[in-house]
Design a protein around this nucleic acid. Sequence first.
RNA 1: GUGGUUGUGGUGUAGCGGUUUCUGCACACCUGGCUGUGAACCAGAGGGUGAGGGUUCAACUCCCUCCAGCCACCCCA
Length: 443
Amino acid sequence: MSTPRIEPRTLKGFRDYLPPLMIPREHLLEKVRHVYRSYGYAPIDTPALEYTEILLGKGGEESDKLIYRFQDHGGRDVALRFDLTVPFARFAAQYINELGTPFKRYHMGPVWRGENTAHGRFREFWQCDFDTIGTTANAADIETALVIHDLMQALGFERFQVRVNNRLVLNGLLEELGLAQHAVALLRALDKLGKIGRDKVIAEMCERTAIGEEQAARVLTLATMEGSNEEILHRLEQEFGGNAKAAEGIRRLRQLVEVARATGISEERIHLDLSIARGLDYYTGTIYETFLGDMPDIGSVCSGGRYDNLAGLYTKQLLPGVGASLGLDRLLAAMEELHLLPKAATPAPVLVVQFSADRLADYQNMARRLRQAGIGVEVYPEAKKVGQQFQYAERRGHRLALIAGPDEFAQGVWKVKDLAQRAETTVEESAVLSAVRTALAGG
RNA sequence: GUGGUUGUGGUGUAGCGGUUUCUGCACACCUGGCUGUGAACCAGAGGGUGAGGGUUCAACUCCCUCCAGCCACCCCA
């Protein structure tokens, strides 16, 4: 008789995270959290499951098909959240009187979408959102750009670009061209520029709106105008400053650019780009997308914008806001491909070798002292051969090994071994902490 | 979701409608050689045809369905 066995496997689009991926992932989350908190965004969380009616119908039939939906044991119609924005809208409608405005929150957690998988796209993935609601002040739009910039910097990227645009400018521009009624279709087509190229965007514009090819080309030419931030602003003011909407959008962009400059951020990193449209209908003002200089083809890793009314479906209270979302898993995939991730499979840099089983108390005591100083330490669980313990330590990615056997205990010393360099030094027991600190700092 | 493509120990590969619970190779893993120092060496062990069905005297090999991966398209609040 053979034992019946369940085949171990994971669902399509879902994946396991092993330590070499999970360690940097947690590290990223810490960095992101730190930046959010440094700006005063407060953490919130919401349930993974919501009543289906809360989530449904926010993006049309197409989007509804992507929602994981089922009946719970009480017969309730429930669904897994597919982003963090819609639950936040519900959350805001429920608690805004308690919270007061303006309210700044960040929210990091998994979301689920039953869409087909593709490169860097999964059915379960994490988003890191931050928003400021309850204010229309441009200061919040500007801060959003600064947060995105600081995020990318904190994550260790040297070459990146936060591209900024404003829907008011786009809409004003379309108004002037007499195309206002086609705004949604045109912007949606424009949003695909990076992916399908100029000719196909023009084709799609003509097809969807029945405007002439000449007009489509005009829109595209304006949207892809290049130059310094100042040059772009100047040209916009010249050509469209007479349009009320456009003028307001230009004013807000100009202030953003000026503040960014004043805080010492280079034009290369925060740059105007009129072709950034975002597919979403609900953005009404400033919009943001972020591209990696070393990996432009993975698309935007942090996107967002300003919206007029976050929670209109759940409350009469008008809640304008601005925010953005960092695609953690896409970013992690990019960093993996750029070899920006360390290889270690352990979060503890130090391994205490268990030389003699009857000295366990000494080993744990030493480990404890280092841990209290904030250093991660593992004590090897078995009194195996020293060589094997070194092998284990090297494979796991520990950087230092601490060794003490009968000889060392007799003299009151420990050996501190640098595993990569295969060099060890002997230090007094009281000096171990500083020796470890020095060795770790040197790496 | 549509189309294409792939699926052989943990990983990567090679072969074949035919004896033998597939066989082979490389790496990894485990044990020992080796109770005071880890990249070598030697010996040994464990582990596999993604799942189910069909054709056939006989299927890892051919066919079908499902599952999963990859690529392209679609979509992306």
